[in-house]
Structures are given as structure tokens and as C-alpha cells.
Simulated assay, not measured.
Amino acid sequence: MTPHTLPAVRGGAVTAHGAGQPPQALAEFVHPGDRVLTVGPGTAPLQLAGWTGQPVTSVHTTLADVEVIRAALGPHGRAAGTVDATVGELFDGRPDAGLFDVVLVTAAVPGLSPRWLDQLAPGGVIVAPVALGGLHLWTACGHDHVKADGLLYGSVLAAGLPAVGPPSAPGERFAVTQSGPPVERLSCPTWAPQWAGVTPPRLTPEGYVDLWAWLATRDDRITAARTDGTEWGPGCALVVGHSAVHVRPDGLWLSDTQPATLALAQVVAEDVQEWGRQHRPAATELTCRLGRRPDAGPDELVTAAGWTTHRPVQVSRPAKKEEPQ
């Protein structure tokens, strides 16, 4: 059974959590004159309005989020219409405002709302923190203009560690916070000497995120876990039922030494070693395909699949040509 690591879709809406500030690489996709939509919490619309020189449209789940934007704009910015901020359903975007060149999502989501795609102008890009294995993978989603095959791809721009956040309440349509996705709480693990040194020595925090992302692409049972009785976490763990294998910079820590748990540890160890054999690919080398099942309903998310470091993808936005004088 896969632990509850990802937000869920309930009643056509995404249960999402705040994912922090967008990565610097977002600047590669936003050009002067672009029409931009932001979906979710935060003050990114203010910066994007400065980049584009155009009013930015945004949708938030609470009036408090909208008031943060309005207060930061000040009287002049509000009068100038620098940001058109409103309360609404994040899943719906802003169908009243036309098509957008860039849609920036600031809530960690398990996939893209088809309505965001409907509101995307030709050649446009959605940048969103797609949840994978408990991580936020900031992903540029769009068409590969070199392949020109009409398929939708994702290319990771940055990856961040999750923060501890409360799980969504039953039936809650949206739970947007700044804290991050739910984190599995597990009992204190046991040091198993035979698994010492499985993870590479001198693993940096960035390298740990890279390894975590790699493991999550190879096994959908990878999740974010915080261990009771320790200061760890949230960290990477493979969890099946009551068995858990924690991936730590100093090795693998096991929930117990039962045969089932030892078997899981062997799986993790082999995947860690493969990461090393592949020259420790970074999370930003990951790409994915995006799509829906053929029988998907109209409100089913467009989800990522086929995460790999072996598929060259160039999701980009050429600068707009200047209009002749």
C-alpha cells in the first residue's frame, strides 16, 4: 500500500499545500508582455507583474491571501490594476480572464488541472511544484518545440525538501498552507549495521534531494517520513505496511529486522547503488511525460509518468517577436 504522500482530488478540486517560493529558473519562461496567471498562495504575482510589465491575474483560496497581495500593492498599485487577485477554486484557474502565456502554480499538486491547460495560450508553459515521493519538483510543463510531436512533457527546474504539514481533513476540498504535504509519521527506526555505508559518504543536502528524487522515480512507495522519538525528518523512506526503510546520509535505518523489512532494504540498497553507477544524476535532469487515461473524466488531473534522466526534453518559451513599427 502506498502511504498518503500526495494531495488528492475530491469533488473536482485539488487538495494542495503551499510549496514556497518559485525557483530562479522561472525567469527563463517569463518574457515582457506575457499574460501570466498565478494559482495558489504567495506574493509571486507582484514580482511577475514587474517582469512582464503587464497586469498579472491570480486566484487564491482565501480572502486573507488576496489581502496580502492588495496590501503589498499599495494604493497606486491597486488603482493601476497591477494584479487582478480574486478568491476562487484553484482547480478552475481564471476562465473569465482569457488565455495565458504562463501559468504559475504555487501549491504542491499531484498533477495539472485540465482547466489550466484549457487557459494556456499556444506555446505557453505551466510551472508547478509537482509532488513526487514527498518532494516538490518544480516542473516546467509544456510542449517540446524541438520534437514538435504534440505531446506534453515536464522538465524539472528545482527540487525542495518537504516541510512537516498537517494532513487534510476528511472531505476538505482545499488545504493550502505554507507548510508542505502530509508526512508519514513512523516509529523510531533500528540501526542495522549491515546497511551502514549504503548511501554515499559526504552526501550534501543537495545530493540527498537528488538521491531521494531518483529513488522516488524508481519506486512509488517512497515517501516523506518523520520518525517519532528523533529529530529526523522529514526524510526519505520506503514504506510498506508496518515495514519502513529510512534512507539517511549515514546508511539505511530499518523499522525492524523482520524478513520483509530486510527485503525492502535490499531493494533500496540496489537502487542507491544504481544512482551511483549512473553518476549521481541531479533531480534537475529528470523529465516526465504528462497525460490522462483514455477514459478519464473531464475533471481528472493530467499527471506525470515515466520519470527518467534519459529522455532529452526542451520545454522552453521562445521570446516574443517584436511587432513591426
Rank of each mutant, 00 (worst) to 15 (best):
A13G: 15
A72I: 07
D34M: 04
A80H: 12
G297H: 02
P167V: 04
V268I: 04
L151C: 14
P189C: 07
A131L: 08
R221W: 08
Q266S: 10
A260M: 11
P281L: 07
P45Y: 03
E67L: 09
T199M: 01
G297T: 00
V83H: 02
R221Y: 11
T230G: 09
T261H: 06
V105F: 03
L120P: 02
G235M: 09
D101Q: 08
G98I: 02
P55Y: 09
A159F: 01
L186M: 13
E300T: 13
P259I: 02
T309M: 00
S58L: 01
G160W: 11
R280T: 14
L37V: 12
K147V: 15
P234K: 05
T106R: 06
V302Y: 06
P281S: 07
Q266A: 12
G207Y: 02
A79G: 10
A79N: 08
S255W: 09
F100C: 09
A16W: 08
T52I: 04
L46Y: 06
A140Q: 05
V109W: 05
R185W: 06
R185I: 05
R94T: 14
G134I: 05
Q314Y: 00
L26H: 09
T15M: 08
S316N: 04
G160E: 15
P3H: 13
L161E: 14
G111C: 02
G154S: 08
A49P: 03
K320I: 11
G171N: 10
D149H: 11
L161Q: 11
A169M: 04
A140S: 06
G18P: 05
T2Q: 15
A8D: 00
D271R: 08
P75V: 01
R202C: 13
A192T: 14
P114W: 05
L6E: 11
F174S: 13
T15N: 10
R10K: 15
Q194Y: 07
P7S: 01
L112W: 04
G241P: 03
R317S: 12
A85T: 00
V313S: 03
A192P: 00
P3D: 11
D149T: 13
V268T: 04
K320D: 15
P182W: 08
T5F: 10
D210V: 02
G160D: 15
P110A: 04
G150N: 12
D65P: 04
A19H: 12
A148Q: 14
R202F: 13
P95C: 12
A225W: 14
A44H: 06
W232M: 07
R115L: 12
L48Q: 09
D210N: 01
Q178C: 00
T190Q: 15
C188G: 01
Q266G: 13
G88E: 12
G77Y: 01
P312C: 07
A25T: 14
W212K: 05
T177I: 08
A97P: 02
T15S: 10
W232Y: 10
A148R: 15
A260P: 00
S179K: 13
A282L: 10
P114V: 03
A283C: 03
V87G: 07
A269D: 01
I222E: 02
T43R: 06
G77P: 00
G165P: 02
Q54T: 15
L90P: 10
P75C: 00
D210L: 01
P41S: 04
Q266M: 01
G77I: 04
A225D: 14
H310C: 12
R280K: 14
L186A: 14
G33N: 09
P234G: 03
A79W: 09
V39R: 04
E28V: 09
G154L: 05
A121C: 08
H242L: 02
H145A: 14
R248T: 13
